[in-house]
Structures are given as C-alpha cells and as structure tokens.
Design a protein around this nucleic acid. Sequence first.
DNA 1: CGTAACTCGTACACTGGTGTTCGACAAGGG
DNA 2: CCCTTGTCGAACACCAGTGTACGAGTTACG
Lengths: 189, 189
Amino acid sequence: MAVTTRRADAQRNIAAILTAAAECLARDPAASTSEIAKAAGVGRVTLYGHFPSRAELVDAVFVQAIATGEKTLGQVDLTGDPREALARLTESSWQLVDQYRALLLAAQDALPPGRVQELHADPMARVERLLERGRAEGVFRTDLPTSWLVSVMHNVMHGAASELQAGRITSDQAAPYITATLLGAFAPA
Amino acid sequence: MAVTTRRADAQRNIAAILTAAAECLARDPAASTSEIAKAAGVGRVTLYGHFPSRAELVDAVFVQAIATGEKTLGQVDLTGDPREALARLTESSWQLVDQYRALLLAAQDALPPGRVQELHADPMARVERLLERGRAEGVFRTDLPTSWLVSVMHNVMHGAASELQAGRITSDQAAPYITATLLGAFAPA
DNA sequence: CGTAACTCGTACACTGGTGTTCGACAAGGG
DNA sequence: CCCTTGTCGAACACCAGTGTACGAGTTACG
C-alpha cells in the first residue's frame, strides 16, 4: 500500500508534518492544523494535501507513537520473577505514558470511539500476558479479573502523569511510586 | 451576599437552569448554552441574564455538586478499623464519582486550571485524614506520601468509571473491585 | 530540459459555538 | 394597580476552526 511514487520533497514534508504534529499535540491536544503546519514549516494546504482531515492526521501520529512505543516495550525483559518483570515493564511504560499523555487526549476526542482502544490492543496484551503468568505462579492475586488489573495499571500511571504535571511529585519519584503501588495492589490477599 | 430581592419566577428559573445544566453536562460535557436553556424550558437570553458566561454556569453546577456530595460523604462512619472505614468511604465516593464523572470533565475544560482542585479540597481532606489515621495505627503503608495514596484512590475510581462505561465491568462489580484494589495498594509492605 | 508532481498564499464557504442588543410582552410585588 | 423586574425570540457581531478552490510558482525526476 505504501505509495513509493511520491516525490522526495513530498516524503520529507510528510515526515516533517508528522513530527511537528507529535510535538504540537504533546503541548496542546487541541492544536489546530494551522499551528501544526506552521511548526512543520509547511503551508496549511500542503498538510491537507497529505492528510484528508485533522482526524486522519491525529490517527497517523497516534499509530506512529504506538509503533515506536511497542518497539521500546518489546525490548523489556519479561522473564524471571513476575514482580521484578512488572517493575521493569512499569519503568518503560511510564516513560511512554508520560511522553504521550497529551497525544492520547488528542486522540480521544478526534478519533471515533473504540479506535484508541483498538490501537492499544498490543501493549495491553503484553501486560496481560505478564499478569497471567504471575497469577499462574501465585505471586499475583486471582480474585480480580486480569482486565481490571490492567486498567488499574493504566490509571495509576496516568494519575502519576497528572500528579507530575501538577507538581505534586517529581519525575524521579513517579516510577518507584507506581511500582510500589502496583505491587501492593496486585499481591494476593 | 445572597440576593434575596429576586422575583419568585426568577429564582425558579435559576433553579431550573441549574438542574437542567447538571443533567445536560452529565450526558455531554460539551453541552451548549442553547441546549441547557432548552432543557430548562427557558430562553437562552434568560440564562445569560442569570449567569454571565457558560464558565460561571458550569462553576455553579460544580459547586452545587460538590456541596451535595459533601453532605453524603459527611454521613459516612469513618470510625473503627481504618480498612473497613475506607471500604465504606469508597462505596459512597464511588457513587458520586460515577454520577458526576462527565460533569468533572466539563469543569476541567471550562474552568480555569486549579479551580477544580480548589473545590475538591474538602473531600480530599476527608480521605487524607482517614489515611493518616490508618498509617498511625499501622494498617496502611507509610513508605509513600499520603497525597500520592489519595491520588491513587481518585484515579482507580475514575478508571472504574471508564471500565463501566466501556462495558468491561458491571455496576455491581465496581465498588468491590475498587475496595479490594485499594486495600491491597494501601497495605504495609 | 521539459513535464508532472508538488507547494504556496490568499481567499472563500461553512459550521457551531458565545455573548449582546433590541423591543415587545408578561408577571410578581408593594 | 402600576411599575419594576424579568422573560422571550430573533437578530446580530464575533471568533476560531475546518476543509476547498484557484492560480502562480517551484522542484524533483526521467
């Protein structure tokens, strides 16, 4: 599907728009197409030449973000004690959540409902597998559904991002706090 | 400061607008003034006659919601085993969070930053006091700041609201799930 | 080097909200 | 009963964004 018949400058512009959009949306989830085009050093018309609508642009940026995030998470060692694996996964995931927080908000009100969920399927599955293994080994609780535990992890991380933004915690504290909280929450009763 | 010199029908209208706004914003955080006015059975101009701007209307609705919420929470018995008290508080808080979820979103992007935080001070203090007591009695962990634990509680509840909305859990499951999660997360290491 | 692909700015049409103004018309209160 | 207070609808100005149209200019690529 990749149209390889695009001229070199066009490809450069597409890339520039994509990275500019990522930056702008990270600053302000409601960033306008004008803003993004300007940041990319490109006319607004050019932007619309490559992305039919703002929504499709946001989608493309989001897809890209998920893809690079997946690459990072794929390198995390998930073997050994599930608790230690969870700590490692949390550390990496937290970086990503913190980085892409605003982008997620942008996606949530620019993309059709369910689309965000759909694109999160892969990273979610990774967490789920680890939790399942921990449950099988008896180090994580089994009295709550795995999907619930995944959502707890998700929400605690996003909560940490809010706390960080509000200045109530520092960047260094976040990961340890999250890890300590989750290990407590996931331990068997 | 309460202007008692208002005509009876005006007071009725104000009340109607307030309750209509509460309903509309609960359905759609971005509900327009036209929508709210129509729901209140009132002209849009009348609405602006009582509330100078959409933001001030949202503020008023939010203040009202907090006040009635506080009344409910004030009746919760917080004595005895802090863990059981937390369970009771969670049960009541969850009802409120679920009910006012959309309103909170409305407030967050209609009100100046910090205003939401400001109005949450009282309910937060209540949770904080309970957690502090539990820490003093050795049943809650002390290796994380109280403010962090409060935020965890907050975020787990809002996460549950999302899960409920997405149909991944049912209304009955929410409170027990939240309670079980928090008791685990707050237990001493 | 010529042509097709691409870009640019400006301008435009459209949408959907906010807040105001106007004048006519009720309705409550003293 | 009169007058103040309040209400109403319609119209208006305004803003900020999205997406499109046009025509002239530029750039890659064969």
